[in-house]
């Protein structure tokens, strides 16, 4: 079997990176950056999640079918958020006659 086995050292490295990113996001949150606070916090969270998915969850070494399944989850989550928020976040921008 062509099984990829990551070394414990590598796992500890990913763990260290996740901890550093956690410290960074907590520190940035104490600064008042306005709307940029949320953008930085989400960028760090997405980075952390990507590290977990690729290396702890072995997607980096998995079959294309698995990678496609992961992307499919993001696609459907994107649809859910995009379609709903494109309604809620644009209310009041466009004047609706009779409302």
């Amino acid at each position: 079997m062509s099984e990829h086995v990551s070394s414990p050292k590598f796992y500890f490295l990913i763990f260290a990176a996740l901890m550093v990113l956690t410290a960074a996001t907590v520190w940035v949150a104490t600064l008042d950056l306005g709307a940029a606070n949320d953008i930085v916090a989400m960028a760090v969270a997405v980075t952390k999640a990507t590290l977990v998915v690729l290396f702890f969850m072995h997607v980096r070494y998995s079959t294309r079918l698995t990678a496609l399944t992961v992307l499919a989850s993001l696609f459907w989550l994107g649809l859910l958020l995009l379609v709903t928020l494109s309604d809620y976040w644009t209310r009041g921008i466009v004047g609706i006659p009779g409302k």
Binding site: T25, V52, F56
Partner: peptide, 27 residues
Amino acid sequence: TGLYWHFVDIVWIFLFPLLYLLGAHAR
């Protein structure tokens, strides 16, 4: 089970900034 456990970890990775850090700079 590892996949499940890491997924639960990822959920927390997003919950933590959205719930806890949102009001942190107002301290």
